[in-house]
Amino acid sequence: MVQKVLTVNNPLGIHARAAARLVAAAGRFRSRIFLARPDRLEWIDGKSILGILMLAASRGSQLRVTVEGDDEAAAMAEIERLFANAFDEGTELP
């Protein structure tokens, strides 16, 4: 299991398109991926777009990300890359 706290740094926060990209990325891995707001204990499934939209994560907010499974390192690396790259804003949706 790998766990990290990541910061949302794109201007619009995790809006619909960003959520779609995050879910698409999460879905490419076999690992189970969970997200949570640091102020709350509940985990949201990283492969659920409705769950991620419900987090309503705005710019500057932090999310705890937990990845668990045989490809967890690669999955976490990809999620970190998405957070760092502002969810590839400005590129075409996958």
């Binding site: 189970r32 969970f34 949570a36 709350r40 204990l41 509940e42 985990w43 499934d45």
Partner: peptide, 8 residues
């Protein structure tokens, strides 16, 4: 394990 109780 995806189910965690929330705060009080």
């Amino acid at each position: 394990d995806s189910a965690t109780p929330t705060q009080m």
